[in-house]
Design a protein around this nucleic acid. Structure first.
Lengths: 193, 193
DNA sequence: TACAAAAGTGCAACTGGTCCACTTATTGCC
DNA sequence: GGCAATAAGTGGACCAGTTGCACTTTTGTA
């Protein structure tokens, strides 16, 4: 009859529930504003219990940032797989320029961005999503440079790179701002212009 | 009879209440650990209502970091009042080296430091206490450099400087670690050794 | 002395998050 | 096909931080 499902029914249902929760959350948040919606409201709207909601998402903030891709792997790959002769800083500059600003450019996400930027809790969570990868990126840089995995300078570089989103958010010339931050990391700070 | 009080009775009593709360909090936290003490416990121990407690301190974390000195003013002053010919980065390096590590060296504060470093919520709050001054320090640097007050590079420098505590915490050679971070800020990142 | 502002109270309520014992659906396996 | 193991979901109680409200007491001041 039907083609046998590649993924089991259980997994499909689980994914459906997850999606129902995330969809309900985003809809309510956009309608009423993040902090005028309780997690109970979201659970109600998705027709699940709050217990179930928290089995799918670890926190209220996580409801908003659903697709948790693995940024971390990409960051590490950008360092490891960079072309011969390119410096680590330049590799990361390229990676950030290529992979980050588009998010803001997507017109569909305009209201989403507005939601995040108008909600302190979400802003904080979002910035933390990046800096959480400091250890992994720092270790990758250190390994690449052939020094101890907890080398301070390498971890500092990692942390600073991961803060470009926070530092450049809301600038009119986003790419230009990112470039300036990376110039600082590449050559040190000097009084501008 | 008594010499007329310079500050009114009201202010004195208010300060006393505040101190009673902070003292009770620190004592209980050190005794039992931060998250095994509720704010109700603290209020009880200080013999005030939780409502009163929250009128003096905005959050549970704030109970721990009582003396809110004005780091911000000192940071700005370090930039503005630096000797002729010294660069901004070097001025900040000196300021951080002179004003930060002592906190950890103070033997009386050993158990306090242990409390903070063993409690994620406090650690986070502590690091945020620093980066909260990004805007002020960034603006001061920008003014000093004679560029727009929201210049990206200046704010990036400020932010990175304010993260040295977080980046170097727990290192065996604290001063050396701070120096390495400032070297990065001064000259750019280069593969170590 | 009278009165306004400030400090403190007590309590209920809300919210994010966890726990627990329980039911139901799905799956893999004999 | 039958069945036991497992995973998803339930519901409700519960905890802790935080706020709101209506109220009393204390203090400063005119």
């Amino acid at each position: 009859m039907d083609t046998p499902p590649v993924t089991g029914r259980r997994e499909r249902k689980k994914a459906a529930t997850r999606k129902a929760i995330a969809d309900a959350a985003l809809r309510l948040f956009l309608e009423r504003g993040y902090d005028r919606v309780s997690v109970r409201d979201v659970a109600e709207a998705a027709d699940v219990s709050t217990t179930t909601l928290f089995k799918h998402f670890p926190s209220k903030e996580a409801l908003v940032f659903d697709e948790e891709e693995d940024r971390e792997a990409e960051l590490v790959a950008a360092v490891r797989g960079r072309p011969e002769g390119q410096s680590v800083v330049e590799a990361l500059r390229g990676h950030v320029l290529a992979s980050w600003p588009p998010l803001a450019a997507h017109p569909l996400r305009a209201e989403f961005t507005a939601l995040v930027e108008s909600t302190p809790a979400l802003l904080e969570y979002y910035e933390r999503m990046w800096t959480r990868h400091t250890a992994a990126l720092g270790a990758a840089v250190a390994e690449d440079a052939g020094v101890a995995p907890d080398d301070v300078a390498c971890h500092a570089l990692a942390r600073f790179v991961l803060e470009t989103p926070a530092l450049t958010r809301g600038r009119k010339d986003l790419r230009g701002a990112v470039e300036q931050v990376f110039d600082l990391l590449a050559h040190g700070w000097r009084p501008p212009s």
